[in-house]
């Protein structure tokens, strides 16, 4: 059930990035937005706009910024990076137990079942099985009962469209199963973002600002045919136009 409870509030976030040559880029300027409980939120922004940095800041693992990040409670903000970080020398279950030492077996099994890895508990991930590794990372995060799961373009490595949509639907399903956890997905892929979201935040590049907020009214239950619907294509085109206006120089978003 969607609620109006704000779980995360970002207030006037400003951050500069200095590269190796000393060149300074303003990544975010006065960036503000709120995330509501159990509302699947997508941040759509082009390549190199600082999505990863933003999620690191929200997860509490990156410092050196101005502004405020307010969380509704003390639970963790679990980060899933754009490159796989599950441990290849551990099985699925061992991977989850490694970070969830204080979590009951029941909760661990619930996470495994929820991500669709039932029967694969003793399998170890192959480095290039991106979908499998993403599921492990999702289970690893969910077993910790996080306030929010921050997903950083983790589907970017998956080229097979069918697998991508399966995973997007899985993310939405997980958002429903874990109703006290909220999913925030940052991507540069407009179709993926729009397909998965309840709310879509359009972010500009250098400086990063929220230029538009979209409340997505597609049905709760979705399938791949949605992307061919007139309603979807219309909304996608209007977002693209808005996006082009704001990011004239940096049109690197995937359609």
């Amino acid at each position: 059930m969607k609620s109006n409870k704000v779980v995360l509030e970002v207030k006037s976030l400003t951050k500069d990035y200095v590269d190796n040559t000393g060149y300074k880029i303003r990544l975010f300027e006065d960036l503000s937005f709120t995330i509501h409980e159990n509302e699947f939120t997508v941040i759509l922004a082009p390549y190199g706009s600082g999505k990863s940095t933003l999620l690191k800041i929200l997860s509490g693992t990156e410092t050196g910024f101005e502004g405020e990040i307010i969380k509704s409670d003390e639970r963790i903000s679990a980060l899933i990076a754009d490159t796989p970080t599950s441990l290849q020398w551990k099985s699925v279950k061992e991977n989850i137990k490694f970070t969830a030492k204080d979590v009951s077996e029941r909760e661990i099994q619930k996470a495994i079942d929820a991500v669709g890895l039932t029967g694969y508990e003793d399998f170890s991930p192959h480095p290039k099985s991106y979908g499998f590794r993403l599921r492990i990372e999702l289970a690893r995060a969910l077993a910790k009962n996080p306030l929010i799961v921050l997903i950083d373009d983790a589907l970017d490595n998956i080229n097979d469209e069918k697998t991508r949509f399966e995973l997007l639907l899985k993310l939405r399903e997980l958002n429903k199963i874990y109703d006290k956890t909220t999913f925030l997905f940052a991507t540069n892929n407009l179709t993926d973002g729009l397909f998965a979201s309840d709310k879509l935040l359009l972010m500009s590049k250098h400086p990063g600002k929220i230029i538009e907020r979209y409340e997505i009214s597609f049905p709760e239950e979705r399938d791949a045919s949605l992307i061919d619907s007139e309603e979807f294509l219309e909304l996608r085109n209007s977002i693209l136009i808005k996006y082009k206006d704001a990011n004239d120089k940096f049109l690197t978003v995937k359609v």
Binding site: K56, S59, G60, T61, E62, I76, S77, A78, L79, I80, A81, D82, T83, T85, T99, A100, E137, R140, A141, K144, L150
Partner: peptide
């Protein structure tokens, strides 16, 4: 080493 190991595992409380 991929720095994402640090960020993700740190976010999970390690």
């Amino acid at each position: 080493i991929n720095k994402d190991y640090f960020y993700t595992l740190k976010s999970l409380g390690l």
